[in-house]
């Protein structure tokens, strides 16, 4: 991490007086005997970034997959803009303008960037045929904004570097005007320069009023980018804190000990 990433460039505090954009109430899901997510409640307001932290296996990915429609929760409720939402599959989530960048990126390696970006939402022309030229043109446009060095529009994404693949996954989430964005370890595979790019993008999207769930291991990135941080351990929520009210050590303590600061 460069020094600059430590400087606080945070905008005005998030207004949490209205209805939350997302409310997860008492979510539980088990695989076999393992309670992967155990009665967890979280909320997220427009223009807010909520960090989700915890050791590997804490249940972070599983929790957000209930919101993105990849998993079906066993118990609990989801409210979007105060209204109860039924999210049974990824298509339902998209209808609520929820976009997800998965930890595993979820790209079809054999297809090019444009086909991946538009997968499931292809632009079609006359006769209902997919309009590859138009999709490539749109992909070039958004990539010009997100990752101007991106050149490999004709190659299958298999041939791309980790950072390039990441920018395809991000472009897919950003292009369709998400209101709720879920990012599962978006910087895990990236170098410092690309991490910086993602950080700037998060700030830009936040300024546009999106709500973002950010799963992130790097505590500095969390302190810098998030408004609140929620820590999970063994499927349970340890607690949610205002990032401005705590230190790095407080959060690390929550992750390791599973206790809120001062408890």
């Amino acid at each position: 991490m460069s020094e600059t990433s430590m400087t606080m460039t945070k905008s005005a505090p998030v207004d949490r007086t209205g209805t939350p954009l997302v409310e997860l109430r008492d979510i539980s899901i088990a695989f076999g005997g393992i309670k992967a997510v155990d009665h967890v409640s979280l909320d997220l307001y427009p223009g807010e970034v909520v960090g989700l932290l915890g050791h590997n296996g804490a249940g972070k990915s599983t929790l957000i997959k209930c919101l993105s429609g990849a998993y079906q929760m066993d118990a609990g409720e989801i409210f979007i803009n105060g209204e109860k939402a039924e999210i049974r599959n990824p298509r339902d989530a998209r209808d609520y303008n929820i976009e997800t960048i998965y930890q595993t990126l979820a790209l079809a390696d054999n297809l090019d960037a444009a086909s991946n970006l538009f997968l499931g939402r292809e632009i079609t022309g006359p006769g209902g045929f997919v309009d590859d030229a138009r999709m490539e043109a749109e992909t070039r446009k958004i990539m010009g904004r997100l990752n101007p060095n991106f050149r490999k529009f004709k190659d299958p994404v298999m041939a791309l570097s980790g950072g390039q693949r990441q920018s395809v996954a991000i472009a897919r989430a950003v292009y369709f005007n998400a209101r709720i964005l879920i990012m599962d370890e978006p910087t895990a595979a990236l170098g410092p320069h690309e991490t910086q790019m993602v950080a700037e993008l998060i700030e830009e999207l936040k300024a546009q009023g999106l709500g973002i769930f950010l799963i992130e291991h790097d505590i500095h990135n969390v302190m810098r980018l998030c408004d609140r941080a929620s820590v999970m351990k063994n499927g349970q929520l340890v607690g949610t804190v205002n990032v401005d009210d705590v230190t790095d050590e407080d959060i690390l303590g929550m992750i390791i000990l599973g206790k809120r600061p001062g408890e």
Partner: peptide
């Protein structure tokens, strides 16, 4: 093609 390349990604793409 997408299902062949990555069935999970295809499912997640709706």
């Amino acid at each position: 093609l997408a299902i062949g390349g990555n069935p999970d990604a295809a499912e997640l793409a709706g």
